[in-house]
Amino acid sequence: MRLLTREALLSFRRAPLLSTLSVTTIGFSLFTLGLFGLVAINLREALRGLEERVEVVAFVLRGTPAETITLATQDIAAFPEVEDVVYVTEEQALARARRELVEFRDAYRDLQVNPLPASIEVRLKAGYRDAATAARVAERLRGFEFVEDVRFGRDWVQKLDHLRNITGIVGLVIGLAFAAVAVVIIGVTIRLTLLQRAREISIMRLVGATNWFIRGPFLLEGALKGLMGGFLSLLLCYGGYLLFRDRSGGTFGGLIFFHPVQMAAIVVFGVLLGLFGSLVSVGRHLRHV
């Protein structure tokens, strides 16, 4: 085992440039994967926050008497899924639109007629804030005859979900491309070392070294480079994470980094990548030495 480790470390001295290159490409491969992974987990986190705001809004037909609506709100507040119910009159809706939609402020000021309907805004209790419950509540709200239309935030929740998936796929594709490059570079490094050490290997063979004994150092070398690449990528990811968090000045204040288990998975993936690269190369080239 000591011999094996020594041999593996020697390779860094034998081909420092290529060895560094292998580590860096593995590092970048995992960095790309990791970066997109970070975006994905942060999006998921953001979605979880948004879920708390899942609301069902029922738009009320113009001219519905206030008493009818008050009665209905009491009814709705008694639903087991409902946290609270707020009645927003037409005037309140317009005022809110003027306040919140700065871009349209002028447009709203010049209006003769208020185009906005009154609405009943229903917030759901924790534990009921999912698309299915929202849909069920919406269905029941539709049952009131003064309700013109019901909306709930399913559309954009789904869009964000979609975005997250796309981010994941893009990251995966770029990361895998880097991974392929890393495997090739590791292969080239090992091929070079094999040629450099052809004499030594042929002598090892003559004195009865098994194939695994000859391969061992190369596999260890690959795994070691993968390990270093894995750590490098974590470092890069963390750097990128800090940069993003500080630059964004609070907008993304709630950004999160990888869980230790996820970090371990990245490093393990690096090791597997290195091992794979060396295994393929050694298998292909050892025969010709």
């Binding site: 063979r205 003559l206 194939n211």
Partner: peptide
């Protein structure tokens, strides 16, 4: 193939 090393350990070359 995997027996070749065993043979070679019984030989001096």
């Amino acid at each position: 193939r995997d027996e070749i090393p065993k043979l070679r350990r019984r030989l001096g070359i």
